[in-house]
Amino acid sequence: MSSHTDALVAHKHPSDFEGAKIAMWLFLFTEILLFGGLFILYAVYRFLYPVDFHNAAIELNTALGATNTLVLLTSSLTVVLSIEALQRGNRKLSLWMLGLTILCALAFLVIKYFEWSAKFHHGLYPGAEELLTHSNGEVIFFNMYYAMTGLHGVHVLVGMAILSGMFYFIARKPVDKERMGFDIIERLRGGAHLAVVADNGNEIGKVLEIDDKVRNIDIKVTYEMVPEKYDPRNLIKLENSALYWHIVDVIWIFLFPLFYLIT
């Protein structure tokens, strides 16, 4: 765009990438603390019932848990590759990697579903008659198991939704939108005409009349034919989504040994 347009869009809000990163990290702290409450409960109960936790953990299927760990670790890799690809302007590869990540998330949930249904089948779910015949510590183990992996599962779902949203944002044609300042609109009011003129003098935009009903003027630029062009805001959004996905992964890295490997 020309310098004329730059002057026109004086009041545009700056996209503060660093600010977005700070906010995302702050949000990740809240996620860690949210799970932190559960980890404290786990620690207290594990300390109170070490033998019961050992016995109950035998019931869990370590092979499925390990598979899920592998699936999530792979997804963390693919989401990073997706960022890398977008940074290099390779939107297509970025979308492929993002799609793989979403598939991994789905695979995780499917495996989790089979794991949970097997437990339900054996009567090992909160409130079940069968579960209440077990010792107190085992009951708590399964309560904690469902609470923690359940909340984690919700986060996987949310992560999937976010990554799918990102897929859509990156897949669609990049659009820039610039808003003009108030003073400019005021100057144009009352029947002025607006045209977009390129540097070489060619008029590219339509001529419009700005009457009193116009409150804002946005200049919308759609990049139809530029495959390597991407909206830079998508990059920071993708990076933040990936950060969220990593935290989901990291939490699982802690859940896996605490529930499956303590036998």
């Binding site: 996620e31 603390l33 409450g37 909160p126």
Partner: peptide
């Protein structure tokens, strides 16, 4: 967030009987 998880736990205890 600690309040959040506490409230969530009260919620799941009362609805899903996760003690």
């Amino acid at each position: 967030p600690i309040l959040g998880i506490t409230m969530l736990l009260v919620l799941v205890e009362k609805t899903l009987h996760i003690g």
